[in-house]
């Protein structure tokens, strides 16, 4: 790490400018989740269209199938990760100042973590609900 940082002049290092050295991991996980979301997303979209016509009892009955509940949790984890990575890239590109980028990415990341937690919890509770 120090060897990599060594290529910056001291003032740039002090100002915290230069690459964060985390770009490869960000890019790689975005691609990895994208590949997982090809089958998961197709299945999820088809399922949502199917579920839209059902009442609550029908939705819970669907969710109680182990493959459906586990599949939905998997979709939420990959989906929220991919969504957070994508929105971060968009904010890095379009938000004008460093402070705005930082604030936007912070709020977005926290909302996505909360979304994943609330979603996974709701799937488990819904699957265990007696209608």
């Amino acid at each position: 790490m120090s060897a990599i940082r060594g290529k910056y002049a001291p003032v740039r290092r002090a100002l915290g400018l230069g690459a964060a050295q985390g770009g490869t991991h960000h890019w790689w996980t975005a691609k990895l989740t994208a590949i997982a979301l090809i089958p998961l997303g197709l299945w999820l979209v088809a399922s949502v269209i199917h579920l839209a016509a059902l009442d609550r009892a029908g939705v819970l009955e669907w969710l109680r199938q182990p493959a459906h509940g586990a599949g939905l949790i998997l979709f939420l984890l990959f989906g929220f990760h991919h969504s957070a990575a994508g929105l971060q890239t968009i904010m890095e590109d379009y938000l004008p100042t460093h402070a705005q980028k930082l604030a936007g990415i912070l709020v977005s990341t926290l909302l996505h973590l909360a979304g994943a937690a609330f979603g996974v919890y709701a799937v488990i509770v819904a699957a265990l609900r007696v209608v």
Binding site: R56, G79, S83, G119
Partner: peptide, 22 residues
């Protein structure tokens, strides 16, 4: 992608209502 990001939160709301708000 932004539309689908918003959709993620709608899906969570949908499952949340099914679980906790019959």
């Amino acid at each position: 992608g932004v539309v689908l990001s918003a959709g993620m939160f709608v899906i969570v709301g949908y499952v949340w209502l099914a679980a906790f708000a019959p």
